[in-house]
Design a binder for these strands. Structure first.
Lengths: 210, 210
DNA sequence: CCTCCATCTTGACAGTGAGAAGATGTTTCG
DNA sequence: CGAAACATCTTCTCACTGTCAAGATGGAGG
């Protein structure tokens, strides 16, 4: 076998790093972010309480790795959407639906993803994936053949920022029970497309004021 | 004195309930939601570790009371805004600015406010204040003389839901470092008004698709 | 074989939330 | 006035957590 133990694979346990991430996800899903316990994650992986230390440093490191993996999954889903043949509005609706679906299927993970600064966790990999999410959204919105943004403050990104803000805000507000769509599942409503219809996605000027 | 000890005032300590809320706010601001400790809040109030129990039940109760008070403050600020003489777009900008300002001035509190379901905290008072925030936003947006919504699913509320979602999403994304406005203070940018300009706040139909 | 090193375990410590039992002051009512 | 009833607060205890230091374990390479 190769000499690449850099990722922490294939040692005494097999690859404890991946196993710990999996058990940590179970604990997170069961108990939520507030009730998360690194010891229990280790227990479920069948190792001692201090085993995670070598792989993740401390609890924040473990949660950070979990969040980074979650960002990667979300970006993968956004990037692999089939958007060809749809107009701008259709693409936005599709992207937004996927975003909300991810949040609904991974509520605890989704919560965690936007809490990392609160845990004083700043890894370059995490920021990178966060940025990748923005690019995936923007690319999906403006189409594959549009010019990529020149930087984070490129004015061409404005519609993407607006869409992301609206979709993200709706998701968190609905999950928190602040927006009641009348639907038993707060995320499974037709409210979001209707709200997105109020957004000028093309980047041109909105209709004149009365 | 009157026979109204229902609020828990004026007993041995004076009014420990209010003092605990104050010290808890200090702890929350210092250590964040993740590092909050009920024991330390009690310590700072000069009472024993178990003193909060009678007033708040458990830690979730203390945080819930804190969040409820924060909602009340936010609603007060939104409701007391002077919006007369402004058109719809001016009113929205003003409301959004106040919302973002509150979040920036009370970051830990603002974080807490949207994590109460995660803490399994559901008090009727909290839901009531959350609803009051929506009404304040809607009233500000549609004007004082507009008809109040008939219910949470009234279609007339749609623009308010959209504005709230966009503003709230922008706030959380900016605080988490996902949206980089190029400004040192992530919340102090002119990005938000520009994004709001893309929203049709009048509730009419958006411009036709190309 | 034997040393080096990544990996994992054991044991300990301070800190936390929560509960039981009791002390202390306040109110109420005979 | 006095005694019970009560709200309020303290002390003690327990299980649990994250973190650290020291040691055991076993593969890799000289």
């Amino acid at each position: 076998m190769g000499k690449e133990p850099l990722t922490g694979d294939q040692y005494h346990h097999g690859n404890l790093r991946a196993a710990l991430l999996d058990s940590a996800l179970v604990v997170l899903t069961d108990r939520g972010v507030a009730g998360f316990s690194m010891r229990e994650a280790a227990r479920r992986a069948g190792v001692s309480q201090s085993a995670p230390k070598h792989h993740f440093g401390d609890a924040r490191g473990l949660l950070g790795a979990l969040a980074t993996r979650a960002y990667r999954q979300l970006c993968d889903r956004l990037e692999s959407l089939e958007l060809a043949g749809l107009d701008a509005r259709g693409r936005v609706t599709r992207l937004a639906g996927e975003y909300v679906a991810f949040a609904g299927e991974n509520r605890a993970l989704f919560d965690l993803m936007w809490r990392m600064t609160q845990f004083d966790f700043t890894a370059p990999e995490l920021a990178e994936q966060k940025h990748r999410a923005l690019l995936a959204l923007d690319r999906g919105l403006r189409g594959e053949d549009a010019e990529p943004p020149t930087g984070d403050t490129d004015p061409a990104l404005l519609p993407s920022y607006a869409v992301w803000s609206l979709v993200h805000g709706y998701t968190t507000l609905a999950l928190e029970g602040a927006i009641d769509s009348g639907n038993p599942d707060p995320l499974n409503s037709d409210l979001l497309p209707t709200m997105l219809a109020l957004l000028d996605v093309t980047g041109s000027q909105p209709p004149g004021k009365p």
